[in-house]
Simulated scan of single mutants.
Amino acid sequence: MIDALNIADLSVSRGDRRLFHKLFLDVRAGEAVALTGGNGAGKTSLLRAIAGFIRPDGGQIDFVSNSVRLEADEARRQGLHLLGHLEGLKPARTALQELSFQCRYLGGNESQMAKAIEGFQLAPLLDLETRRLSAGQRRRLSLARLVSAPRPLWLLDEPLAPLDSVWRQRAGDQMQAHLAAGGMIIAAVHDPLPFAARAFDLGGFA
């Protein structure tokens, strides 16, 4: 299981524009990092580079377990979740069908899915097609996938944006439970997370 992430001397560009250069970031089990910086600073690009969807211009991204560096592709396949701006839900599937599919695909089980349904209070929504859900309900369903198939590293892009104040706090409680179990979170944010997190400003790496 991934228990540390070490990023060293990382540089990423988009087109002809360099987003950040010589970036260093270490994250340990039980730690949350809130990525800050203005629009275009590279918050989303950093998450996607960690997840392996963007090839950096230079530098190193290492996933570590018990002080041993893991093979990166395998660590990504088995050890992280990426939740972006788009929910990635099939509109004609019911919430139950979507969550069940994602749980199986990502290696979860029925017990974990039941825990996710309870934690995000999805029971009244399970028979509804995802296209009929509100933005906040769709985000709750997407966050539930993280709980239904536990993986140590959560990469979250504005995870609380569509949620009201009550659900921001409840989602924050689920994130804190993940950290308490030894998980890690890196979240791109504009607004503060509803729990203590280490701020990391990308503005100084352009």
Rank of each mutant, 00 (worst) to 15 (best):
Y105C: 06
A92C: 04
G203F: 06
A8W: 02
L156V: 01
R140P: 01
I61E: 07
V27A: 15
Q174L: 15
L202Y: 04
L10Q: 08
S165A: 14
Q176P: 01
Q137S: 09
D62Q: 14
G203E: 01
D26P: 08
F195R: 13
L82V: 07
A188V: 04
A4P: 05
G59V: 11
F205N: 11
A188T: 07
L146V: 02
V64G: 10
A180M: 09
I117N: 01
T130E: 10
L163S: 02
L89T: 06
P150G: 09
L70D: 08
R48Q: 13
E129L: 05
G15C: 07
N66L: 12
A29L: 07
R132Y: 10
G108M: 03
W167H: 08
F120I: 05
H81F: 08
P91C: 12
F205W: 14
D201T: 07
E118R: 09
G204F: 06
D57N: 13
N66Y: 00
L106A: 14
D201R: 08
L156R: 12
A180I: 00
S100Y: 00
G40A: 13
L70E: 14
L193M: 08
D57V: 03
E118G: 04
S67N: 14
M113L: 15
L153E: 07
D164M: 12
L106N: 11
G88C: 04
R151A: 04
A188E: 06
L163T: 05
W154G: 13
G84H: 11
A51E: 01
P159S: 05
S13K: 09
V189T: 15
A4C: 11
V64F: 06
I186T: 07
L125Y: 08
A206S: 14
A161F: 03
G172P: 04
R14H: 13
A123N: 08
V33C: 07
P91T: 06
R48W: 07
L193D: 13
D9F: 03
R18C: 14
E118I: 00
Q97I: 01
G37S: 13
P192V: 01
Q78N: 14
G40R: 06
D201P: 12
S11V: 05
